[in-house]
Amino acid sequence: MTTEVATAAASGASATERFHSDKSPFAAVAHTAPERVDRLARRVLDAIYDTIRDEKVTYDEYNALKAWLINVGEDGEWPLFLDVWVEHVVEEVATDHREGSKGTIEGPYYVPDAPEHGSKGTVDMREGESGTPLVWTGTVTSTDGTVLENALVELWHADADGFYSQFAPGIPEWNLRGNFRTDAAGAFEIHTIQPAPYQIPTDGSCGKLIAAAGWHAWRPAHLHVKVSAPGHELLTAQLYFPGDVHNDDDIASAVKPELLLAPVPQADGSVSVDYGFVLDPTR
């Protein structure tokens, strides 16, 4: 029997397929004026031209870039590349008006419609799932302090090996993914495990860029979350753990001080965190 092994190409293909199935990227910009498209396209191209002229790029370097860009597409790694190196700036611009909680990038591994567990519950996980048990409590309110009952808290994160369910083989479909609803007091309680730092996939084209540039591929340990409520803007965030050596040099540039948790060790070996969210009303 052949055991399927997780690879960057397989994860990239899964991320690309998921993006196409879950997103409608062109519908949202269907009525964008040609002048806007022209302006954005020209600014991107001008930045490329300036780099070529300033750095005196050679034909060998140009052809290497062309081959690499083709390989990114063949590996299905465009979602990974864009989410790791570009999305943090898009998120910064898109949310700079907000008064409530800070957010950060979504990343390529979100899956909607995870199993719901009420206001207090445990995410699906394998028996003996590796990692320190984590109990997370919090509340969801509006910027005026109003408690938001029935707000949706969507949680997903990698396992102890850095793999996400539905994007790597051998992992149950909804492993370490779950949705929760706040109670009448706007509160929730989630039981999961504390994730570990991990490297983004390096056996594909993104890994070749990392190696060629002498970068590292590490992301600090983090919990992904989306928080939503009627009449309020969707908040997408990642929550981090103090002391992680890659909080200061996250390859995805997604860490913000406001997103650091404060874990408290418990007598039973678990850790607890209390972290809530303040949502901005829809403009």
Rank of each mutant, 00 (worst) to 15 (best):
A151G: 03
G162K: 14
W174R: 06
T182P: 00
S165M: 12
E154C: 09
D183N: 14
R177V: 01
N150S: 09
G186A: 08
L148E: 01
L148N: 02
G162A: 11
E189H: 05
Y164W: 13
N179S: 13
E173A: 14
L152H: 09
R177M: 12
Y164M: 07
L148G: 03
N150G: 00
P172Y: 13
N150I: 01
V147A: 06
G162I: 06
T141S: 06
A168T: 05
A187G: 07
V153C: 04
D183H: 05
V147P: 02
A187D: 05
L176H: 00
W174T: 06
A151S: 10
R177F: 03
I171M: 14
D161H: 15
Y164E: 03
E149L: 09
A160D: 10
L176S: 01
A160I: 07
A158D: 05
I171S: 07
L152W: 11
F180I: 04
D161V: 08
E149P: 02
S142P: 13
G170E: 04
F163V: 07
G170I: 14
V153W: 05
T182C: 00
G170M: 09
A184E: 12
N179H: 13
F180W: 02
A184D: 07
N179G: 07
L155A: 00
H157F: 11
F167N: 02
L152A: 08
H157S: 10
L176V: 00
E154F: 04
F167M: 07
E154K: 08
F163D: 04
W156S: 03
F180D: 04
F167R: 03
E149G: 06
T146Q: 11
G145H: 09
G170A: 11
R181M: 06
N175M: 07
P172V: 15
G186T: 06
N175H: 10
R181C: 00
